[in-house]
Design a protein around this nucleic acid. Structure first.
Lengths: 174, 174
DNA sequence: CGACAATACTAGGACTTCCAACTATCGGCC
DNA sequence: GGCCGATAGTTGGAAGTCCTAGTATTGTCG
């Protein structure tokens, strides 16, 4: 088990493929090289990080998106939220929330309930089992520092700051 | 069309949902908060950036992953590469390459050819049409700075540097 | 009050990514 | 030379994301 995980499905290259892409890109005179490299890096980083986290969550039969939904519910005052509000907070499309809640409900970690006032809305309510699994999964993730333990706190914060700008420009908040 | 794009499917919140998650996380005493925030940020940033790029590529009937494959082929000396090598360079699973090439082949942008020496291997070869579309798509992406034009060059480079560490630690290269 | 727009959710389809398993071929080693 | 592990690619299936479209309910406004 010296391997970093299943998402690393081949030998390490002797060069950085993104640095190589940057070189080629420049030599073709294609422009916006920094943007290209940043975007490609984000893409690959996402793939790595999600892969690691899903590996950590597999023992609990969870994925990161389902885990995020559980955490959001466990943080809410009553353990219940309308699906629409969940979509806003999790920053995903409404249909993704439906999908996620379908699976969590099937697994007994969440239950759907009618909204007391608005009959269009549906409340997702976390179950006791849902809370228990969330606790265990959180312990595992924190223990493994979400798979990014090699990075220093400073690097993590730099990352978050740069990406916050991106998110704000995209209209996520403010 | 003052909207930033389809992937922004709701009003902006008045607060940053990741800052809010960070606050809640801390108040529950859960640990590894910086890691949690960084990972969540990467995830959301990926979603935003890919969404923008795919919007830009839609007129060419391309997606980012297919575009990346085309660029890789167009950069290669002969315009052809074994699928396995493409997977290494693009850092994706072999089955993803098969899937991508299937679609590009269906669209006439790439053709499969037998490897001259190794009969196990398959060469993906970019067609003239593939090269033409790649050129047009590249112009569009560069013009739009890959959807991250609001970020300064310095920020883009910081991002790339932080993520390079992550990628190296994950065994992508070196 | 009644028409019409807006909101909340769900259904169906496209796309990507991964994993597990299977086939075909290559290569090393006795 | 022949066996057997490694390598290359494909197939089938599970998940996630998004988009478009459709139903039900709410709310606004003449």
């Amino acid at each position: 088990m010296s391997d970093v995980g299943p998402y690393t499905h081949r030998m390490a290259l002797r060069f950085d493929p993104i640095a190589e892409a940057r070189r080629q890109w420049d030599s073709h005179g294609w422009g916006a090289t920094d943007a290209m490299a940043a975007v490609t890096s984000i893409s690959r980083a996402h793939q790595i990080v999600i892969g690691r986290i899903n590996d950590l969550l597999r023992p609990f039969d969870l994925t990161f998106s389902r885990y995020e939904a559980l955490v959001l519910l466990s943080f809410s005052r009553t353990g219940a939220l309308p699906l629409g509000k969940m979509g806003e907070r999790l920053m995903v499309h409404p249909t993704s929330v439906t999908n996620t809640i379908d699976r969590l409900e099937r697994d007994g970690l969440v239950a759907r309930a009618p909204h007391p006032v608005d009959r269009r809305a549906v409340l997702a309510t976390i179950t006791d089992e849902g809370r228990a699994v969330t606790k265990l999964a959180t312990d595992a993730l924190v223990e493994a520092e979400f798979g990014v333990g090699e990075l220093r706190t400073e690097t993590l914060r730099d990352l978050e700051a740069s990406l916050r700008k991106l998110r704000r420009d995209a209209g996520d908040f403010e």
